[in-house]
Amino acid sequence: MLVAMHAPDGFLGPGVAVVTAVISIVVIGLALRHASAELDDRQVPLAGISAAFIFAAQMFNFPVAAGTTGHLLGGALAAILLGPWVGALVVAVVVVVQALLFADGGITALGYNVLNMAIVPAFAGWALFLLWRKVMPRSSGGVVGAAGLACGMTVVLSAMAFSIEWLFGATAPIPFDTVFGAMVGVHALIGIGEGLLSALVVGAVMAARPDLVTGARDLSAEEIGDRRHVGARAFAIGGVLVAVVFAVVVSQFAFDDPDGLERVAQDTGFLDRARDHAVAGSPFADYATRGIGNAQLSLAVAGLAGVAVTLLVAYGLATATRRVSPRRSFHATSSS
């Protein structure tokens, strides 16, 4: 499940593939319009080379533990550096090229892959970044800390988005709880690495060209120069808080294995009949709700996760729309 991000063909049901494809096309169409308003005729070279940057940055592998390697995902990072519209567009281009040229992710899976890897990270990541900025000091350190926490949490949000899509389009008899627990658990760990790496990347850009960090445009020169290590402490405290919250959520599922009685009921097919009442006639995929220990609780958690992801993406979209102002191109003259 670790790499369910680049999902292949037929990994989720056709209904989910079509619905997510429609959502992705609409949002990327909007992103195109906003990006051309923001970047004007600089859009083609800047978005193209930024996409190449994300592509290249994903190639920087380093071992994490026990033979697995990690690399940057970069969805939320792109939003913080380039703004959510351009960020979403750029990462979507990367995802589509990876599917068409490298068979990395299925062609028919592009709807949910673009949604999970470009749209949710860009807009939910942007929303989380703005929210964390509000509790962080107005300084370089605050921006770096907020970027790290937002990027880390965004990885988990993407995993949640995938689990919710699984609820509607499961193609294997693995219940929603198992998928949700595994996805959120594994991606909480990946999120720590992503958050750390993204924070340090933003820190490096803030040190060299703070004007290129779209998420820090509102800072004055003195605030940018304020490089005290407030970020590090806030980052650590915030990180522990987030980790505790996710640990509680995941542990809800980790110990939710069916007990002996349920197992017997399941094997005799009795549970299937019993549960038909709970979810009968629902739009949920039959597979995803089969074998859930406590259907009500699981669906409540699914609902909460869905509401959280949707609200954050909506907040990101709303704030992104509000900030459409042509980019100040004062740096265009300062570059070599």
Partner: peptide, 21 residues
């Protein structure tokens, strides 16, 4: 250091984009 070079790559990419434009 890995993140610092990725950050520098971003700055260089963006500036390259502006020069190319």
């Amino acid at each position: 250091p890995v993140a610092a070079s990725v950050g520098m790559l971003f700055v260089r990419s963006y500036e390259r984009g502006e020069r190319v434009h």
